[in-house]
Computed example of a mutant assay.
Amino acid sequence: MATRIVLIEDETPIRDNVTTLLSLKGYDVESAPNGREGISLAMVSQPDLILCDIMMPEMDGYQVLEAIRSNRSLATVPFIFLTAKTEEADVRRGMISGADDYLTKPFTLESLLLAIESRLQREALRESDLQSRLGELRRTITRMSNHEYNTPLSGILGFVTLLMEHYNEFDQEDSLSMLGMIKTCGLRLKRSLDNLRLMEDLQENPASIQFIKGMSRLDSAVVNHHIRTVNERHDQPIQCQIEMAGAPISISETGLRIVLDELIDNAHKFSDGSNPIRITGRREGDSYRLTIVNRGQPFKPEDIARIAPYVQFDRKSYEQQGSGLGLAIVKKLLEATGNALEIESLPTGETSVTAVFQGVNNG
């Protein structure tokens, strides 16, 4: 299929000549005499490249470029200015606005073709790199999903099969124990799926952030409640030491539930079990610091900035559980409410994760 080019040029002779010459070279060219028609044409035809004059009546090239770059489907389309303006400030303004190249009138057919081919080649390389990254992301998600979803699902199917095929061989205690394991596996699977939906909502639907805005109270009773909730998803109970000062904090009860659930679960998941998890909460001026400390797998300084969905650290060294969504969700929720997440990890394996809540009052 021929490369599609949209040409936006108000001077008829230039528009007709460029259209004819590029068509003879095998390009599929559509042209528009002004910026408004050019934008509409680009939205309909979805071109591979846009050529646009700067000095046009009503709507100049800079305004066209701004509109193109603000359109999601056209934002990455290569954009070349055709203009008689040669001042350095004009060139800089075009590049800052997002233009890919700048061809000064009068130009030759050779220089025009060279500019077009250069930009198309760069776009092809960018697209190839993007596809490679997407392929790696898909493989990462598939690998994590197989572990995160299939592990509890295998547990559920295994215990159900055992109970169905040998139900008369187990006493009540054994049966209840297996049913408890089925519940544990089911809760873990539900949490994984809930986090997947929550992260998608937070990334795709800004309005969904509203549910975490508000005030709630944080104290030892609230923390203990969430420890019990997390315990239901794990085979081994969580050992914790809690030292909390109660305070109202700037996040809704729903938001606080998610933050506590994820941070406690994360600490338990990566703890080596040699020491209890320490949970402390204290005021510092008009802020409140909730800190959860565990000893186990350390965070490297460079990994802290890489917290994101489907990112795991030292996968080859540690058999991790999780999709990387937990901390990414907490970080996004806290930032959306004007709060912050701090992580400090020592080489000895002691990691402190602190949620810093702003605007604490004396209520």
Rank of each mutant, 00 (worst) to 15 (best):
S175V: 10
S132E: 03
L176C: 08
F159I: 02
R191P: 00
A124R: 03
L193E: 12
P78T: 07
R126A: 01
E117N: 11
H147Q: 15
S154D: 14
C185N: 15
K105A: 05
L189A: 10
A124M: 02
L125V: 07
G135P: 01
K190I: 09
M181P: 01
F79R: 02
L137E: 13
A75D: 04
T151C: 03
R191C: 02
L196A: 12
E87Y: 08
F107M: 06
E136S: 12
D194Y: 13
S132Y: 02
K190N: 12
T184K: 14
T104M: 15
L103M: 07
F159Q: 10
M181I: 02
E200M: 13
F79P: 01
L179S: 11
F170C: 06
E165M: 11
T83P: 01
F79G: 00
E123M: 10
H166T: 12
Y102G: 04
S145H: 11
T151Q: 09
G98A: 09
Y167K: 07
L187K: 12
D100T: 08
L74G: 04
E87W: 06
L157G: 01
E136P: 00
L157C: 03
L157I: 09
G98T: 10
T140K: 14
P78D: 03
A89D: 07
M181D: 15
A115F: 03
A89C: 01
N150V: 06
L179E: 14
R93G: 03
A89H: 08
Q121H: 10
D129A: 04
D194T: 08
Q131G: 00
Q172S: 14
L114C: 06
C185T: 02
R191I: 00
E169R: 05
R72H: 10
D90W: 07
A75G: 01
S145G: 12
L187P: 08
F159P: 01
T161M: 07
L82C: 08
G98E: 10
S118I: 06
N195K: 14
M164E: 14
Q121L: 10
M178K: 10
P78F: 03
R133T: 09
S73R: 10
D194C: 05
I96T: 12
D129S: 04
S97Q: 13
E123T: 04
L120D: 03
A115M: 04
Q121P: 00
L163D: 12
A99D: 07
A99M: 05
S70H: 09
S111T: 13
I156S: 05
L120E: 05
N71S: 15
V160R: 05
M199H: 09
I96Q: 14
F107W: 06
G98M: 10
N195Q: 15
D129P: 00
R143G: 13
T184F: 06
S175R: 15
R119Y: 01
G98H: 11
N150L: 15
R126L: 00
I80C: 03
L163S: 11
L113M: 11
D100S: 11
L189H: 13
L130K: 02
L103F: 05
L74E: 02
F107E: 08
V91S: 08
A84N: 04
K85S: 07
R92K: 12
A115I: 02
L103Q: 05
M181W: 09
D171W: 06
G180L: 13
L137V: 04
C185W: 11
D90C: 05
L130G: 00
E165V: 02
L125T: 02
R69V: 07
G135T: 08
E200A: 13
L125C: 01
E127N: 01
